[in-house]
Lab assay of single mutants.
Amino acid sequence: KTVHVNGVQYDFDNPEQAERFAKEMAKKAGLQIQFHGDQIKIE
Rank of each mutant, 00 (worst) to 15 (best):
K1S: 12
K1H: 13
K1G: 06
T2G: 02
T2N: 04
T2C: 15
T2P: 03
T2Y: 00
T2M: 06
V3C: 07
V3I: 08
V3M: 02
V3Q: 03
V3L: 04
V3D: 01
V3A: 04
H4L: 14
H4A: 07
H4G: 02
H4S: 10
H4N: 11
H4Y: 14
H4E: 08
V5M: 10
V5E: 01
V5I: 13
V5C: 15
V5R: 01
V5L: 09
V5Y: 12
V5S: 02
N6Q: 07
N6W: 02
N6F: 12
N6V: 03
N6E: 06
N6S: 04
N6H: 08
N6I: 03
G7K: 05
G7R: 01
G7V: 03
G7Q: 02
G7A: 02
G7F: 01
G7D: 05
G7L: 03
G7E: 04
V8K: 11
V8W: 07
V8Y: 08
V8P: 04
V8A: 05
V8E: 08
V8L: 08
V8H: 08
V8D: 06
Q9E: 09
Q9H: 09
Q9V: 10
Q9N: 08
Q9G: 06
Q9K: 12
Q9P: 09
Y10C: 15
Y10E: 02
Y10H: 07
Y10F: 11
Y10G: 04
Y10A: 02
Y10Q: 04
Y10V: 07
D11H: 13
D11E: 12
D11F: 13
D11C: 15
D11G: 01
D11N: 09
D11Y: 14
F12V: 01
F12A: 03
F12Y: 02
F12M: 04
F12R: 00
F12L: 10
F12H: 01
D13M: 05
D13L: 05
D13V: 01
D13E: 10
D13T: 03
D13C: 15
D13R: 00
N14Q: 04
N14S: 12
N14R: 01
N14H: 05
N14D: 14
N14C: 15
P15M: 11
P15G: 08
P15R: 12
P15T: 11
P15Y: 14
P15H: 12
P15C: 15
E16V: 07
E16P: 00
E16G: 06
Q17M: 10
Q17A: 14
Q17C: 15
Q17E: 14
Q17I: 09
A18H: 02
A18S: 03
A18M: 04
A18V: 03
A18T: 04
E19H: 09
E19F: 04
E19Q: 07
E19P: 01
E19T: 03
E19A: 05
R20C: 15
R20I: 11
R20Q: 13
R20H: 13
R20W: 05
F21G: 06
F21W: 08
F21S: 04
A22W: 08
A22S: 01
A22M: 08
A22V: 11
A22G: 05
K23R: 09
K23P: 07
K23C: 15
K23I: 10
E24I: 04
E24K: 00
E24F: 00
E24C: 15
E24H: 02
E24L: 00
E24Q: 03
M25P: 00
M25T: 05
M25H: 04
M25Y: 04
M25D: 03
M25Q: 10
M25I: 12
A26F: 02
A26I: 05
A26W: 00
A26E: 09
A26D: 06
A26G: 07
A26H: 04
K27Y: 01
K27T: 12
K27A: 13
K27R: 09
K27E: 12
K27F: 01
K28D: 10
K28R: 07
K28W: 01
K28S: 11
K28V: 13
K28Y: 04
K28M: 12
K28A: 13
A29E: 13
A29W: 06
A29M: 15
A29F: 13
G30T: 02
G30H: 09
G30S: 05
G30E: 08
G30K: 03
G30W: 01
G30R: 02
L31D: 08
L31R: 01
L31T: 09
L31W: 02
L31Q: 06
L31P: 04
L31S: 10
Q32S: 12
Q32A: 11
Q32R: 08
I33D: 11
I33F: 01
I33E: 10
I33C: 15
I33V: 10
I33H: 05
I33K: 01
Q34G: 08
Q34N: 12
Q34A: 05
Q34W: 05
Q34R: 09
Q34D: 14
Q34I: 14
Q34E: 14
Q34F: 08
Q34T: 07
Q34H: 14
F35P: 11
F35W: 13
F35D: 13
F35T: 12
F35A: 12
F35H: 13
F35Y: 13
F35C: 15
H36M: 12
H36N: 13
H36P: 13
H36Q: 13
H36F: 14
G37L: 00
G37S: 07
G37V: 02
G37A: 03
G37P: 13
G37H: 04
G37W: 00
D38F: 01
D38S: 06
D38L: 03
D38V: 02
D38E: 10
D38Q: 03
D38N: 06
D38M: 06
D38H: 02
Q39V: 14
Q39F: 11
Q39R: 03
Q39Y: 12
Q39G: 09
Q39M: 13
Q39C: 15
Q39W: 11
Q39N: 08
I40P: 06
K41W: 15
K41F: 15
K41M: 13
K41G: 10
K41Y: 15
I42D: 09
I42C: 14
I42T: 07
I42A: 06
I42S: 08
I42Q: 06
I42F: 06
I42R: 02
E43D: 11
E43R: 05
E43V: 13
